[in-house]
């Protein structure tokens, strides 16, 4: 474990907590893409499937973190699609999730480190996570704005994988460890946030709201 990975995971936990707080406090999921949250839940379940297969006692923080990620993302989907369904902005959350899931599944079958079920599921979850934020960014471009709290969520979510890139550089240099699939997907994922990062740093940090040119 190195500082970049630690802060990456903390940033990821912060993003999940910020979103849950926003929905719970405002009792509304306006401006939040339910599809992105569904895709994240699929990512966690397919990536941490080993938790279900051979459940081992929660002997380390990693198992606890995986359970937190899975339960928090499923709970977020429950809030969006059930509890606060009336506030879900369905007609703006219109990016076709199939256009993300099918290519990720296809690519996972073509490019992977080992052709076995668990490895393919892990690879699928890595590819899917890289593009899972697209429906959320698409929704913001459709509505033309993002609530400040949602911007903080996106900043934390984007920073998590950006910090992981630093973690991979660190591990390559000091541990000669390299996981090419995770690195390439993580770089793609972070690049997708660049436009948002620019808006966040030039606007939200100065207290303005993000309003996209309509």
């Amino acid at each position: 474990m190195n500082i970049f990975r630690l802060f990456g995971d903390l940033s990821h936990l912060a993003a999940i907590a910020i979103l849950l707080l926003k929905i719970w406090k405002t009792r509304s999921c306006a401006g939040v893409s339910g599809k992105t949250q569904l895709l994240f839940a699929v990512c966690f379940i397919t990536r941490y499937i080993d938790l279900f297969l051979h459940f081992v006692s929660l002997y380390n923080t990693e198992k606890v973190m995986k359970l937190i990620y899975i339960s928090a993302s499923v709970f977020t989907c429950y809030l969006i699609f059930f509890k606060f369904k009336a506030t879900y902005d369905g007609n703006h959350d219109s990016m076709r999730a199939e256009f993300l899931i099918v290519p990720a599944a296809g690519l996972a079958c073509l490019i992977n480190t080992k052709f076995d079920a668990i490895e393919i599921l892990w690879t699928f979850s890595i590819y899917l996570e890289a593009v899972a934020i697209l429906p959320q960014l698409f929704l913001i471009s459709k509505t033309g704005e993002a609530e400040t709290i949602t911007s903080h969520y996106l900043f934390a979510q984007g920073s998590y994988r950006a910090l992981y890139i630093l973690n991979w550089i660190y591990r390559y240099h000091y541990e000669s460890h390299v996981d090419t699939i995770a690195i390439v997907a993580g770089v793609v994922q972070t690049i997708l946030y660049c436009d948002f990062f620019y808006l966040y740093i030039t606007k939200v940090v100065k207290g303005q709201k993000i309003v996209l040119p309509a």
Binding site: R5, T113, D179, A182
Partner: peptide, 10 residues
Amino acid sequence: CEMHESHDEL
């Protein structure tokens, strides 16, 4: 060298 162990990151 690429040490291929099971993916040990979240």
